[in-house]
Amino acid sequence: MFSRAYRAVITLPPLLWVAAFLLIPYALLFCYSFWSVSPDQVIVHSWSLDNYRELFRVDVYLQTLFRSMWIAARVTIFALLLGYPLAYFLSFHAGKRKDLLYQLVIIPLWVSYLVRAYAWKTILGSDGVLNTLLQYVHLTKHPLEFLLYSPFAVVLTLTHIYTPFTFLPIYASLEHIPRNLVEASHDLGASPFQTFWRVIFPLSIPGVLAGATFAFVLSLGDFLAPLLLGGPSGIMISNIVVSLFGAAYNWPLGAAISLCMLVLVIALLFLSENLEKKWSFR
């Protein structure tokens, strides 16, 4: 029913814009990662694999990448442990309050990242709310120093930020489960435990995968929470990239690290999408 002209008019402008401001920039990231910087800080447009060799030669890059993945993995696990039962509760047991509770979950999702990270900083600091509270009720005599400027602070903050992200797809997949399947399972004599593990959980796996991917990918690339709350031991891979683009002035090496991150992220998205399809009953 739509003419060729109509389809061209709706297709071309977004296609061109996205090509100019997303495709070309991502392609430039690729190009930069093969270039280099001369000693007088000029980008040299000659192609080599030197940046990638550097990545594998100097320990700190791989070490930091693995540390970031470990932080992201912990965030993912905690976000699932907090998000899944909450989604299950809302979907199956919340009754009339479902709508209100759902809104209560998505509000923090859209509330400023910076505001929430800053709030944790004021809570965890050595003169912060938590430490002064603990001393006020005489649980501790001195401020606990490990609370702020540590991987702990980064994991806690990122878990806070990405739990609603993880909740959403899980909740959506639970909502899609036909309720008569659950009733059939009960009626055929399965215990609630069996019903959950053999009917509900398998059907919610696509949501779990999507939620876990969100949490892992977004926390892996985070650089603001580590800068604000991580201290020296909480440095993540993106912080190295930021410094390479800033004071250290080695854009090509920074681009190479970013490209590795991009490839890792796209591989994960691809993997999770295929697993989701495999587990999807439609």
Binding site: P25, L28, Y32, S238, V241
Partner: peptide, 29 residues
Amino acid sequence: FPGKAVFRRLVLLPLILPGIITGLSLLML
């Protein structure tokens, strides 16, 4: 249109990708 699947993914990418990658790519542009 040709490349529709790629286009769909590309449009959504900034939502799923860590902001640093989109930010840096644009900085280079």
